[in-house]
Design a protein around this nucleic acid. Structure first.
Length: 591
RNA sequence: GGGGACGUAGCUCAACUGGUUAGAGUACCGGCCUGUCGAGCCGGUUGUUGCGGGUUCGAGUCCCGUCGUCCUCGCCA
């Protein structure tokens, strides 16, 4: 070893010992003859003193931040009054006998002590420097601890960790696939997996009745703060289970690993909503329960108020819904009207509002608030004096829900309801099995085509497919979807009925999913599972608001890697080996 | 594909309604300094204002285009 100790481990008990340490120069305080050098590694930071008195005839110039320095010296107690209680190693210091720059470093492209304030572009371009920072190191330590705790927990419960292919087959539906050309089969392509869905079901047929894998997944879709084209899932599948078994397993797992990595206690069972309830009360299928604000449907009451925006929205099949803002009556007109942008961004025409005052109501729609309907409205929304009520009306319930769920988020922030460090889980269940595809008008799977229909709704599968609920469930944390799963179809006949409902005939289904359909014929047990977005969970636990912070080498919004420059061009030879030719990229002359 | 924000010294930012030689902190370089821990003191260097075009007597500032990063809608079974 080139070192005898790490920079974080020296304590008073080491005083008098000889030591050799290696670390990065965190800071230098130069007093002329005497220099203090803070040497840092993964484990901590220690003060080294370098002076002509201590150095064995060596002269040492040009020390600079982030050089890698090897110091041989003696551990000494710091003089009284010179100890640093903010450092774990602050009772001692290393007096250098020799000091050698073993990894030089030019002036830095950015100041690592600048925290997350530094331009993200630079941080990710020089990620090796960025990752030396404490905050960043701690995030990756947390992520590692999380994965370790998950594996321990599941290992103890008899789960087997199995791997699935990265080079696999493109399947229709779902997200866009990343494609990989096949040299041995010119003109044909592998796809990178969007998830190991079918493979894990095949494991169930094989009898590996408790499977887990921490696995990379790939989806070629546009990026977001919480979405990367490659991301990591904790993938789980279990045989001989019902929905409640999967839910119980995940609650136990999540509570255990969060306790292990953060020390926090999370109460179970988690609150649970049907999809319909979640949409009704929060306007979204991933409600953030850190806020207790709820939406209230007032369509039936406001249709009689004589306010045309409301009545015409309802006549056209839409709705009017409200959010009560406790204490919002104190907000200025300007503050309230700034909320309008939030709902307009989601397609709403505008924001209606009123305050309840001592002597009635005030605000944009108060002149319509008269009579019985008006007092019923105040009652239903539970308006008290000093409250504000925000309303959105639209012919599309989707717009009403969407805009109010965004408004709810904004209100929660303004009301300071979002407590730092809070972890509010909930389940959302009974998703629709299908949603209507806007282009074709055809039912298309809401989750994926192997999701089991709710047994109570089976008879409507052919005639009213859009009303059939699924045995599907999402786990939501602080408004982020962190896991999603379902009970799967394990009978080939039912699977064929579902394919039929989404417009896949037997031949097409056979062609696309023969490997699964065949497996289902050869003794498939009932099974179900879930996949948990590990980067996202880690992101919430770390208290950061970008998934990129939890990925060592993340992609930019345009899908490029700032460190490597990927994606890049390849040679003509490489292309021809895989039987590909690039289209001429000619300037667009469509004028 | 749509909407929005940003781009000024290595870094973080400033520069009013267009107006003198584009500033500050920090980093960097030089000098002083043997008990600092955000060390201190003195001095100094650093700019294609992302790029290209336009309007103007005059553009960091206004307009058009373009590139990059971020947020967001669509998209993400």
């Amino acid at each position: 070893m080139l070192r005898s100790h790490t920079c974080g481990e020296l304590r008073a008990e080491h005083v008098g010992d000889e030591t050799t340490i290696i670390g990065w120069i965190n800071a230098i305080r130069d007093h002329g003859g005497l220099r203090f050098v803070d040497l840092r590694d993964r484990y901590g930071c220690i003060q080294v003193t370098v002076s002509p008195d201590s150095l064995a005839g060596q002269s040492l110039d040009s020390l600079r931040s982030e050089q890698v320095l090897q110091v041989k010296g003696k551990v000494e107690a710091r003089p009284d009054g010179m100890k640093n209680p903010r450092l774990d190693t602050g009772d001692v210091e290393v007096v250098a006998i020799t000091a050698t720059i073993i990894g030089d470093c030019p002036p830095l492209p950015f100041d690592p002590s600048g925290g997350d304030q530094v331009n993200e572009e630079l941080r990710f371009q020089y990620r090796f420097i960025d990752m030396r920072r404490d905050e960043v190191r701690q995030r990756f330590q947390l992520r590692s601890d999380l994965q370790h705790a998950i594996r321990c927990h599941l290992h103890k419960q008899d789960f087997i960790d199995l791997e699935t292919p990265i080079l696999t087959k493109s399947t229709p539906e779902g997200a866009r696939d990343f494609l990989v050309p096949s040299r041995l089969n010119p003109g044909e392509f592998y796809a990178l997996p969007q998830s190991p869905q079918i493979f894990k079901q095949i494991f169930m047929v094989a009898g590996f009745d408790r499977y887990m894998q921490v696995v990379r997944c790939f989806r070629d879709e546009d990026l977001r703060a919480d979405r990367q084209p490659e991301f990591t899932q904790l993938d789980i599948e279990m045989a001989c289970v019902e929905e409640s078994d999967v839910i119980a397993l995940i609650e136990g797992l999540v509570v255990d690993v969060i306790r292990t990595v953060t020390g926090k206690e999370v109460a179970t069972p988690f609150p649970s909503f049907s999809y319909a309830d979640a949409m009704q009360r929060y306007g979204t299928d991933s409600p953030d329960l850190r806020s207790d604000l709820e939406l209230v449907d007032v369509s039936d009451l406001v249709s009689q108020l004589g306010f045309k925006v409301f009545s015409s929205a309802i006549e056209e099949g839409g709705s009017v819904r409200a959010i009560r803002v406790p204490g919002g009556g104190a907000w200025s007109r300007k503050q309230i009207e700034s909320l309008e942008d939030v709902v307009k961004n989601q397609g709403a025409g505008g924001l209606a509002w009123f305050k309840r005052t001592e002597d009635g109501t005030a605000g944009s729609i108060s002149r319509f608030l008269q009579g019985e309907a008006s007092s019923q409205l105040l009652d239903r929304v539970c308006m008290e004096v000093g409250d504000l009520c925000c309303l959105v009306a639209d012919r599309s319930n989707k717009v009403v829900n969407g805009s109010l769920s965004f408004l709810r988020k904004e209100l929660a922030i303004r009301l300071e309801q979002i407590e730092p460090g809070a972890l509010e889980f909930c389940w959302v269940k009974e998703f629709p099995l299908f949603v209507e595809d806007e282009a074709s008008g055809r039912p298309t799977p809401c989750h994926h085509p192997f999701t089991a229909p709710h047994p109570d709704d089976l008879e409507r599968l052919e005639d009213e497919p859009l009303t059939v609920r699924a045995l599907a469930y999402d786990l939501v944390l602080n408004g982020f979807e962190v896991a999603g799963g379902s009970i799967r179809i394990h009978q080939r006949e039912l699977q064929e009925r579902v394919f039929e409902a989404i417009g896949l005939n037997q031949e097409e289904a056979q062609e696309k999913f023969s490997f699964l359909l065949d497996a289902l014929r050869y003794g498939a047990p009932p099974h179900g599972g879930i996949a948990l977005g590990l980067d996202r969970l880690a992101m919430v636990l770390a208290g950061v608001d970008s998934i990129r912070e939890m990925i060592a080498f993340p992609k930019t919004q345009r899908g490029t890697c700032l460190l490597t420059g990927a994606p890049g061009q390849v040679s003509g030879e490489q292309l021809s080996e895989v039987g590909l030719q690039l289209e001429e990229s000619e300037p667009d002359e469509s004028s």
